[in-house]
């Protein structure tokens, strides 16, 4: 499990970074071509959609690394079993939220799968919407792995106290 989560984290970060590079390069292309008097119509749309993918993948990795900002004054005050219990509650809240987002995301993907991009009608909007269930799904995996760690901590905490 641990190795799987590590690999997932790494792959997702790389995928996000590649999308970041894509939109960066596309914007540069847009500036250059415009000043050369050539108009490439798809640059803005490709940039926007790569950006969405990059951010959603990055957000998910940040769940694994516990970087999303939270107020930790209660967590800092509670130690041992109480602290572990609070962490478990938070993990469960994140899992529950992401299960709902995952299911709703699937609904959105199926509703809008066949919508097309404005500038490249051959491309489907489904390719963009699917980032939502992927994000929520991976967030569930990360939160579950945290949950398992906190359960272990709780058990060992109870044994030692």
């Amino acid at each position: 499990m641990k190795r799987f989560v590590q690999a997932l984290d790494k792959i997702q970060m790389i995928v996000g970074s590649i999308f970041l590079c894509i939109f960066f390069l596309v914007i540069i292309l847009q500036i250059v071509t415009r000043h050369l008097g050539i108009s490439i119509i798809w640059t803005e749309e490709v940039a926007n959609y790569s950006f969405i993918w990059a951010i959603l993948m990055g957000s998910s990795v940040m769940v694994n690394r516990r970087e999303h900002f939270n107020f930790d004054f209660i967590q800092r005050k509670l130690t041992g079993a109480k602290g572990a219990t609070l962490n478990i509650v938070i993990d469960l809240i994140l899992v529950a939220f992401n299960i709902v987002i995952f299911l709703l995301g699937i609904q959105v993907v199926t509703e809008f799968w066949n919508y097309t991009w404005a500038t490249i009608p051959e491309m489907k909007m489904g390719y963009i919407w699917i980032a939502i269930p992927i994000m929520a799904g991976t967030m569930i995996v990360y939160s579950l792995s945290h949950l398992m760690n906190h359960m272990k901590a709780l058990k060992s905490g109870e044994v030692s106290s």
């Binding site: 990059a54 951010i55 990055g58 940040m62």
Partner: peptide, 10 residues
């Protein structure tokens, strides 16, 4: 960069 941006953009 991606890490930092994702936090505020999420």
């Amino acid at each position: 960069t991606l890490a930092l941006s994702s936090l505020s953009l999420f």
